[in-house]
Amino acid sequence: MQKFLQNVTAIIGTNFRVGDSATLDEFPGTITIKPESFKNYMWDTLKSLERWGFKDFLFINTHVGNFQSLTNYHQTYREIPEFVVTS
């Protein structure tokens, strides 16, 4: 990882620790976020980072429950001229 980071001219941010876990609701303690709330959370995060000059974003999905939501948002965010979004 250290060698990889030496070649990156970017800030690697934290992951989103919430998401759509509706398929896991049968398990005690599962916390799920509605897709629309997750979308708003991501949008607010992007806009906040944009205010600080960031415009290129890479999303790496590590939770299968978020796959469809991220796929949909990816298309939406790619249509915004100020952003470069990859997943």
Results as ranks from 00 to 15, higher is better:
residue 33 I to E: 11
residue 59 F to H: 03
residue 79 E to C: 06
residue 13 G to T: 15
residue 66 N to I: 10
residue 75 Q to P: 04
residue 47 K to S: 02
residue 47 K to Y: 02
residue 37 S to N: 12
residue 23 T to V: 11
residue 56 D to E: 00
residue 22 A to T: 08
residue 42 M to E: 06
residue 66 N to H: 12
residue 31 I to M: 03
residue 71 T to V: 05
residue 11 I to K: 15
residue 54 F to V: 01
residue 55 K to M: 03
residue 16 F to C: 01
residue 68 Q to M: 07
residue 65 G to T: 11
residue 10 A to Q: 03
residue 28 P to C: 13
residue 48 S to C: 10
residue 86 T to V: 10
residue 64 V to S: 13
residue 55 K to P: 00
residue 71 T to G: 12
residue 73 Y to I: 02
residue 15 N to P: 08
residue 33 I to Y: 09
residue 22 A to V: 09
residue 51 R to Y: 07
residue 72 N to W: 08
residue 17 R to G: 12
residue 16 F to Q: 04
residue 26 E to P: 00
residue 63 H to A: 09
residue 64 V to A: 15
residue 47 K to F: 02
residue 4 F to P: 00
residue 26 E to F: 15
residue 63 H to F: 15
residue 31 I to W: 02
residue 58 L to H: 07
residue 38 F to G: 01
residue 79 E to I: 04
residue 83 F to M: 11
residue 52 W to C: 06
residue 46 L to N: 02
residue 86 T to Q: 13
residue 79 E to Q: 14
residue 18 V to C: 06
residue 55 K to E: 06
residue 66 N to V: 10
residue 35 P to R: 08
residue 64 V to H: 11
residue 81 P to S: 14
residue 3 K to T: 09
residue 67 F to A: 03
residue 50 E to I: 09
residue 70 L to Y: 06
residue 66 N to Q: 14
residue 78 R to W: 04
residue 22 A to D: 13
residue 28 P to E: 14
residue 21 S to Y: 13
residue 52 W to H: 14
residue 45 T to W: 04
residue 20 D to C: 10
residue 35 P to E: 08
residue 11 I to S: 09
residue 4 F to R: 06
residue 46 L to S: 02
residue 25 D to T: 06
residue 20 D to P: 05
residue 1 M to C: 14
residue 30 T to Y: 15
residue 20 D to T: 07
residue 58 L to R: 13
residue 11 I to N: 11
residue 52 W to L: 12
residue 25 D to I: 08
residue 77 Y to N: 02
residue 59 F to Y: 11
residue 64 V to R: 04
residue 39 K to D: 09
residue 69 S to Y: 01
residue 2 Q to I: 07
residue 56 D to N: 11
residue 17 R to S: 10
residue 74 H to V: 01
residue 59 F to V: 05
residue 35 P to F: 11
residue 12 I to S: 11
residue 83 F to N: 01
residue 36 E to K: 08
residue 49 L to V: 09
residue 77 Y to F: 14
residue 4 F to I: 12
residue 41 Y to S: 09
residue 5 L to E: 05
residue 1 M to L: 11
residue 50 E to V: 05
residue 37 S to M: 03
residue 59 F to M: 07
residue 46 L to H: 01
residue 87 S to C: 06
residue 62 T to C: 08
residue 55 K to F: 03
residue 24 L to Y: 14
residue 73 Y to M: 00
residue 14 T to A: 12
residue 54 F to P: 01
residue 77 Y to M: 13
residue 15 N to R: 08
residue 45 T to R: 04
residue 41 Y to L: 12
residue 42 M to I: 15
residue 10 A to E: 00
residue 26 E to V: 10
residue 35 P to A: 00
residue 28 P to I: 15
residue 11 I to E: 04
